[in-house]
Design a protein around this nucleic acid. Sequence first.
DNA 1: TTTTTTGCAAAGTCTTTGCATGGAT
DNA 2: ATCCATGCAAAGACTTTGCAAAAAA
Lengths: 151, 151
Amino acid sequence: MDTGSMLSKIRKQLHDGGFKLTPQREATVLVLLENDKDHLSAEEIYMLVKQKSPDIGLATVYRTLEMLTELKVVDKISFNDGVSRYDMRKEGAQHFHHHLLCLECGGIEEVEEDLLVDVEKIIEKRFRFLVKDHRLTFHGVCSNCQNKKSS
Amino acid sequence: MDTGSMLSKIRKQLHDGGFKLTPQREATVLVLLENDKDHLSAEEIYMLVKQKSPDIGLATVYRTLEMLTELKVVDKISFNDGVSRYDMRKEGAQHFHHHLLCLECGGIEEVEEDLLVDVEKIIEKRFRFLVKDHRLTFHGVCSNCQNKKSS
DNA sequence: TTTTTTGCAAAGTCTTTGCATGGAT
DNA sequence: ATCCATGCAAAGACTTTGCAAAAAA
């Protein structure tokens, strides 16, 4: 799906939620679409948006991200470093994808397949807990850093 | 395992790491042991420790928690509310247990069984990622809140 | 006109750090 | 005497909020 149709889809999601896709919000969404492999913090997003719209304020970025999170356009996640990070929800994804956090280099890989289907069934049955979403992050050593260490 | 033997075990872990179990640290560890079903924030731990040792400072609690996290006596986790929470690592547990976060009442249940053994094997094989630990939280509705809503 | 959104600055919350004091080895 | 740990206050990092101005409906 190209950026244009992603954008109109998101515009519709905003309108359905009673919001407008202002130039500032559009610029923020574009940054998120263009960096969908990264896990940007609000500050990082702000810096990138500023290149397109130099007059935007940090508060607007925060407010836009809060709105996008409510609308489930983005998912908000924290990797225990005290910063919230934002990730575009993948097309058609019911649940948030998983993450592999490398303890050596700090890099983050994404795992898009949902590996938790069976686990969720167990949770729903055994705990009578109605699962809506999940956050799964593995901490470990990525293949790159394993190679570096062995050599 | 009773509190006393837990404490001597932790004392040993500290000594092995080159730290002393000072009265302030001991009071902090006791609060954690006594509240191992909760997921206390640093501030909450501070308030409880203050009842035992009124002269303790918040910074000492933060420094103690950082030390205990490094020694893997406790696990640090954030549930996307901007606060770090601390949880005693369960006796003999290789990995951090899972959490069920209720979106209605904010309550947190613990899931002690490790349901990720198979998933981790897939991750290790498919991504050549060496898994050391994990963070898994389900977002949803707990059984209590489901009952409330249907009635 | 009425409502929504924005930018800025200020305030708020959570956490870390500097430093002099105090305790332990 | 040296080293580590503590308490306090200050600073730092991240995020939210109040408000007047601007934009949109």
